[in-house]
Design a protein around this nucleic acid. Structure first.
Length: 463
RNA sequence: GUCCCUAUCGUCUAGAGGCCUAGGACAACACCCUUUCACGGUGUGAACCGGGGUUCGAAUCCCCGUGGGGACGCCA
């Protein structure tokens, strides 16, 4: 049997980081076992679902590089199928009409809460042998409820949490179709997972309570049961539940913030799953190693500092063409137009080891690409009499030197010797003069990449 | 309130009864490297929630507490 997993978000917002991890694990599990990964959009909540949200999810998945093999399937397009199954269940007696109004339900719930009981439907319309049902009221369109078993228990071996068991007496008869005939979530999921041949349902922790109900429906339908694996949630940096107000939650926020997709994937993989002491691994390695046995069953707190570190590691080894592309894109957003050419790639390569994210890399690279003027304070501090004479001495040496790092370095050292000063006395004013900043990578490398013309022009601004 | 899940350094985690005087990573701190800022290197401090069992032996198994989380919708 080939493994078939699915990711089934509801399009009511962005693809958030928790959903992204769920998708990643489902994707990886399918890939690991040579199976299929299916994308299904659960859009039966017509009031809250939007096409923009669907697009945001698709964009997020694409950005992360999680490609689906089948779908996206839309539940709204499967209405006929759901309705057919409901009719079939009604006929088989595994579901029944319920005429209880919302008001009655609210009253029932209030009573139960007052008595400190778990709120649940009391089964007043549930047909039983020998039971007399209330008279059918006029003018009320009934909902359809699933006839849940009343005794015994439902249990399953959760792939991440182990054995979980619920007494059927804890479960009430859930509504599977609204008065207008549209099916509800728990029912659609069941029919979809069945029809789509899903073998492993990997989803968030918040669904464990739905699982026994879904299993009971599957059993009533005579459908095979998938393996369930419930992932615990991701908490924010502050240990609180993730919220849009306090945390970056949409995966595209991380793109905007300058994180590399591979770093995010690696970080997410490591958040809640482990392979011994391994911290950094490629996507391919992850797929090869991934299993359900090493998933943590307790909630994990998101740690931006560790993500930053990982991102930096990825940045250091990232391909220069790709980085140049990202940098150009980010510079363009602030009105600096550069093309992804050999020069940009060289500059990026020089700076990539000292940035933690792509935005910082763009910041760092910008002074090389466009002329920045040092602040008055910098000038006052660094363009002292000795500073300026060092720059003059150096400039004269740079005019004719062969333009490569070793020779440039030699020039700087000669200036140091000529003026009887140490390296920083020359290097720092030099940085301020050519970059407008007192810090940079090794200055000889910076000069080399900038080119003679540009360096001399910038130096002469102050001499 | 009821049900379900969960509990190892500040954080992510290793740990499948003896390999644990509990390992790694991030962060912190110290030192080293250094042409500035970073990178990097070396090292230090830092944890098995509490109480009972089971066992020759428990971070690991069981029970009870406590803390944390989730669910209890004609939302998904």
């Amino acid at each position: 049997m080939t493994v078939r997993t699915r990711f089934a978000p509801s399009p009511t917002g962005y693809l958030h980081i928790g959903g992204a991890r769920t998708a990643l694990f489902s994707w990886a599990y399918a890939r690991r076992h040579g199976g299929q990964f299916i994308l299904r959009i659960e859009d039966t909540d017509v009031a809250r679902s939007t096409p923009e949200a669907v697009q945001a999810i698709l964009d997020g998945m694409k950005w992360l590089g999680l490609e689906h093999d089948e779908g996206p399937f839309y539940q709204m397009q499967r209405m006929d199928r759901y309705k057919a199954v409901i009719a079939q269940m009604l006929a088989a007696g595994t579901a029944y009409y319920c005429y209880t109004s919302r008001e009655e339900l609210d009253a029932l719930r209030a009573e139960q809460e007052a008595r400190k009981e778990k709120p649940r439907y009391d089964g007043r319309w549930r047909p039983e042998p020998g039971k007399t049902l209330p008279p059918v009221p006029t003018g009320i369109e009934p909902v359809v409820r699933f006839k849940n078993p009343t005794d015994g228990a439902v249990a399953w071996d959760d792939a991440v949490k182990g054995r979980i068991e619920f007494a059927n007496s804890e479960l009430d008869d859930l509504i599977i179709a609204r008065p207008d005939g549209t099916p509800t979530y728990n029912f659609c999921v069941v029919v979809d997972d069945w029809d789509m041949g899903i073998t492993h349902v990997i989803r968030g922790d918040d669904h464990v309570n739905n699982t026994p109900r879904q299993i009971n429906i599957l059993k009533a339908l005579g459908a095979p049961l998938p393996v369930y694996g419930h992932l615990s949630m991701i908490l924010g940096d502050d240990g609180q539940k993730l919220s849009k107000r306090r945390n970056a939650v949409a995966v595209t926020d991380y793109d905007d913030a300058g994180y590399l997709r591979d770093a995010i994937v690696n970080y997410l993989a490591r958040l809640g799953w482990s392979h011994g002491d391994d911290e950094m691994f490629s996507r391919e390695q992850f797929v090869e190693w991934f299993d359900l046995d090493h998933i943590t069953s307790s909630a994990a707190q998101f740690n931006t500092e560790k993500l930053n570190w990982l991102n930096q590691q990825y940045l250091k080894t990232a391909d220069a063409v790709y980085l140049a592309d990202e940098v150009a894109k980010r510079l363009a957003k602030r009105g600096v137009t550069v093309s992804n050419d050999a020069h940009l790639q060289n500059v990026v390569a020089l700076y990539k080891e000292r940035a933690v994210n792509l935005n910082e890399l763009a910041d760092a690279v910008e002074p090389v690409l466009v002329e920045l003027h040092p602040t008055d304070e910098m000038k006052a501090t660094h363009f002292t009499e000795t500073g300026l004479s060092a720059l003059r001495d150096l400039r004269d040496r740079l005019v004719a030197v062969s333009w490569e790092k070793a020779a440039l370095s030699a020039c700087i050292k000669e200036t140091c010797a000529a003026l009887g000063v140490k390296m920083p006395a020359v290097a720092i004013p030099l940085r301020v003069a050519v970059l407008g900043l007192p810090q940079s990578p090794a200055i000889d490398a910076v000069l080399e990449v900038m080119g003679r013309e540009s360096v001399l022009a910038r130096l002469n601004r102050f001499l």
